[in-house]
Simulated scan of single mutants.
Amino acid sequence: MNRSQILMHASLHAASLPRPSRAPTARLSISWANSESEVREAQALRYEVFAVEMGARLASPKHAPAGLDIDLFDAYCEHLLVRTEGDDGEPGAVIGTYRVLTPAAAKRAGGLYSDTEFDLTRLRALRPRIAEIGRSCVHADHRSGSAIMALWGALAAFMARNGLDTVIGCASVSMRDGGHVAASLWRQIAAQHLAPIDCQVRPRLPLPIAHLRQDLVVEAPALIRGYLRCGAKLMGEPAWDPDFNTADLPLLLRTADLPARFRRVTG
Rank of each mutant, 00 (worst) to 15 (best):
G236H: 02
I70E: 01
L68F: 02
V218F: 01
R27C: 09
S4Y: 12
R225N: 09
R143D: 12
P24N: 09
D74I: 01
P24H: 08
G134S: 00
I209N: 06
Q214V: 04
R213V: 05
R129A: 10
Q5W: 15
L45Y: 06
P20F: 03
G178H: 00
A93W: 05
L212G: 01
F158Y: 13
I95Q: 06
L216Y: 01
T121S: 14
E85G: 07
L123W: 06
Y76M: 03
V94D: 02
L101S: 09
L7P: 04
P196Y: 06
L7N: 13
V218M: 01
S114C: 10
M54T: 09
I148Q: 07
A66L: 10
A59N: 06
T102A: 05
H193P: 11
A191F: 08
L7R: 08
A106G: 03
P196Q: 04
P208N: 03
I197H: 14
L17E: 05
V52C: 11
D115F: 02
D71S: 12
I130Y: 14
E132C: 03
C77R: 06
C77D: 03
P203N: 10
R124F: 07
G178V: 01
R57Q: 15
V217S: 12
P103L: 10
V138R: 03
M54K: 11
G267M: 11
A156R: 11
R202G: 13
W186Y: 07
R57F: 11
I148Y: 07
H63C: 07
Q43M: 03
L207N: 01
P18S: 04
A190C: 05
G226T: 08
P242H: 05
L80E: 03
V181P: 02
T166G: 09
A26F: 09
S172K: 00
C230A: 04
G96N: 07
S35R: 13
E219P: 12
R264W: 15
F244W: 05
G169P: 03
D119P: 13
L258E: 10
S136W: 08
Y113V: 06
A10R: 10
I70V: 08
W240R: 04
R22N: 15
A125C: 07
G110C: 02
P18N: 06
A157L: 15
H13V: 06
M175C: 01
V39S: 09
V100E: 08
Q192M: 10
A140S: 15
W32Y: 12
P18C: 02
A147G: 05
E117R: 15
E36K: 11
P221D: 00
A191L: 10
R3T: 11
S144K: 10
L72P: 12
L112Y: 13
Y47K: 13
A10N: 13
S31H: 10
